[in-house]
Amino acid sequence: MGEISIVEPGLQLLVVDAGRNTHAQEIGFCASGALDQLSFELVNWLCDNALDVPALEGMGEFTLSVNFTTVVAVGGPSVSVWQNDKPVDVWHSLLLQAGDTLRVKPQRMGTKTYVGVGGVIDLPVVQGSKSIVTREGVGGRNNDGASLKKGDVLGIDLHEHHPQRLLKEHEKPDYTLDKPLDVVVGYQYEHFDNWQQQLFFASEYEVTNDISRMGYRLKGQPIAYPETDLYSEGINCGAIQFPGDGQPIVMLADRQTLGGYPKMGCVADYDLYRLTQAVPGDTITFQSISSDNARAKWLLRHRLEERIFESEDTEHGADD
C-alpha cells in the first residue's frame, strides 16, 4: 500500500471513477463519475489500470507527492506538468519514485485535468462507486462529499506494472469547439415549434459562469416551449433542458435523477467530453444528428479507442 499526499489541491480536487449504476439512480443518487470520461479512461490506460478505476479530477493548479514507486499519467486540455520541478510530458506514462512531487497547471482556468495512478485508490465504496459528490455529500474518506484538501493522504493499492506508454498526436482528445456539438433529438423535440427548432440549431451560445458538475447553463437566443404540463422523468447525461427563461442547460455527471423541464434532446455521448472542458466565455453551437449517424460516429470513436486500449506494446505511441 502506498500513499499520495495532497500538497496543494487547487480550486477543486476530487476522486472520480466511472460513476454510480442505474440502481443507485433509482434510489436517488446522481450518476456522478468523471466529467470528461474520455480523458479519464485514457489516463487509466496509460497507467495499465482497468478503465473504470478511480482517478483524480482537478481544477486549477495542484501538487501531489508520493511515498512509493509508481507510474502516473496526466491528461487534459492545454496542461503543463512538472516532476520535481522538471517539465515532463502529458499523455505519457511517468515513473515516480518515493518522495517525488507532481505539479499540474492547466493553461485555462476551469478546465479539468485527470491524474491516473498505477493502482486503486483506497476509499469506501458508496452505492457502487468511489466518486466524491460534493452536492450530495457523498463519497470520500468520511463519506461527506468533501473535496480533497491540503494535507489529505490517499492510500493506493499498488499494482506492479510500470508501463511505458504514450499517445500519438492523432490519439489525443480534440477539445476544440469550432465544430458544433452533435445533438440527438428526443420525443419532446416535436413539441417545440418548427421555427424554434431551427432557431436553436442556428444560434450560438456562450458558456456562463453558472456551471458545475451538475450542468452547464448557457446564454444566447432564448427558445420558447408551448405552455403544457410535463411529467418529471429521468434525465440523461447531456440532456438539453429549457427552463422558463428559455436559456439552455446541459445536464452532466452530477445531475439530478428526475426533471420536468422540456428537453430538445441530448448531446451525443462522444461529444460530451468537449463540452465538459469548455470554460465561461467559450462559444458553443449545436447540430442535429440522427440516432443512426450518431451511432456510426460512436462506433468509429470506439474502434479507435479499442486499438489504443487493446495494445500491449510498451512502446505504443512512440513516434515512427
Rank of each mutant, 00 (worst) to 15 (best):
R165F: 10
A239C: 12
L252R: 04
C47G: 05
D85K: 14
E160W: 03
E160L: 14
F62Y: 10
G60S: 03
N293D: 15
L304S: 13
L167W: 11
Y270E: 05
G186M: 02
K112W: 08
M1N: 15
K179Q: 15
R108W: 05
Q188K: 13
S212I: 10
L102P: 01
G151K: 11
T63V: 13
P163R: 06
N67P: 10
V183A: 03
E315V: 05
A50I: 10
A253G: 01
E160D: 15
I249M: 06
V74T: 02
R108N: 06
E204M: 10
W45I: 03
I308Y: 00
L102Y: 03
G60Q: 06
P222E: 06
I132P: 01
L38Q: 08
G244F: 07
T283V: 14
A98Y: 02
V7H: 02
Q247T: 05
I284A: 09
G260E: 08
A294D: 13
D144C: 01
V267E: 09
L51W: 01
Q97F: 07
E41Y: 01
S80C: 10
I27S: 06
G58Q: 02
K130D: 05
R20V: 01
P243E: 13
P77L: 10
V120D: 06
D245R: 11
T22C: 00
F286H: 03
N49A: 09
G139Q: 05
L42K: 04
S290G: 15
E26N: 12
L218R: 08
F309H: 15
V72R: 02
R274D: 08
N21Q: 11
Q12M: 12
L154V: 07
E190A: 15
G244N: 08
E306P: 00
F200I: 07
M214C: 02
A55Q: 04
W195K: 12
H170F: 12
D36R: 12
D89Y: 09
C266M: 14
W298H: 11
G155F: 08
E206W: 11
Q83V: 14
L11N: 11
W298M: 12
E305C: 07
W298D: 04
H302W: 15
G19H: 06
E204L: 05
V15T: 07
D122F: 01
H162D: 06
L299G: 01
Q97E: 15
G119H: 05
D271I: 03
